[in-house]
């Protein structure tokens, strides 16, 4: 038989006859394949838009870019009827419990796209109020870089989610189980959060002590060396 991907394009219920060679429109395929096919072509995104990226997300849904072409135009504003959370924009510590709660409310199977630099890493806001990457709060499947990413970037990220779904298997026990013990808890252990949230490259004139004393690029390099020593221990 032919795999589903090579169906004639005009085929739809009532008129389309699958050329399977078997009477009464029977066909056989792998369960994984058909489930993943259904899942990836009708994703219902839950737009968790907060800032600039949300405007680009709206542009992706509007006339010029139109993510309806990929079966995703049905934006679901209720987490209960969504399977893809798009976190677009900066997330603050005040918003973090809301983000986690929305994620916990989404039923499995669910995926998460972190759209933009702020959601992925805190971006240019390495300060007291911004979460340094939402992966400290919820598991992320695809990171879309950019500040903000263009609509094409978001669409590419969503196509990567589709690719990822293609490779999933029902037999994989890690994949899609509900985990009640993780509800409302950080996604990463404290040590890892400390590690991923360190100041990095472009935080000019800024280090862990910023605001308490004079800081400069020189002080920052010493700071880095100290950290390296810490890690060696």
């Amino acid at each position: 038989m032919k795999p589903l991907d090579t169906l004639p394009t005009g085929a739809h219920p009532g008129e389309g006859r699958l050329d399977t060679g078997i009477p009464h429109n029977w066909m056989t395929t792998k369960l994984d394949y058909v489930i993943n096919w259904a899942r990836r072509n009708s994703l219902w995104p839950m737009p968790f838009g907060t800032a600039c990226c949300a405007i680009e997300m709206m542009a992706s849904a509007a006339s010029k870019y139109d993510i309806g072409r990929f079966g995703m135009e049905r934006m679901s504003f209720s987490p209960r009827q969504a399977d893809l959370m798009i976190v677009a924009g900066r997330v603050t510590y005040k918003l973090a419990p809301v983000l986690r709660r929305v994620w916990d409310q989404m039923p499995q199977p669910k995926w998460c796209v972190s759209m933009g630099a702020c959601a992925s890493s805190g971006g240019m806001f390495d300060n007291y109020t911004i979460v340094q990457g939402i992966d400290t709060i919820v598991p992320v499947d695809v990171y879309v870089p950019g500040c903000p990413p263009r609509p094409e970037g978001l669409i590419y990220g969503l196509l990567m989610i589709q690719e990822k779904i293609k490779g999933e298997s029902l037999a994989d026990p890690r994949a899609r189980d509900e985990a009640p013990e993780a509800v409302g808890r950080p996604n990463l252990p404290p040590e890892t959060i400390e590690l991923v949230a360190q100041p990095f490259g472009n935080s000019t004139n800024q280090n862990r002590m910023s605001g308490l004393g004079p800081t400069s690029a020189l002080a920052r390099s010493r700071d880095r060396r100290e950290r390296r020593l810490e890690h060696r221990d």
Binding site: Y93, A96, D126, N127, Y128, V131, P186, I193, S210, G211
Partner: peptide, 27 residues
């Protein structure tokens, strides 16, 4: 953590990042 715009308040907050995350989520 205090009053953020005072000059004695560090830019990245007084608590460590992990403490900030866990406090936010346990609110």
């Amino acid at each position: 953590e205090g009053f953020p715009l005072r000059k004695d308040f560090p830019l990245r907050g007084r608590f460590s990042r992990s403490a900030q995350v866990s406090r936010a989520l346990s609110r």
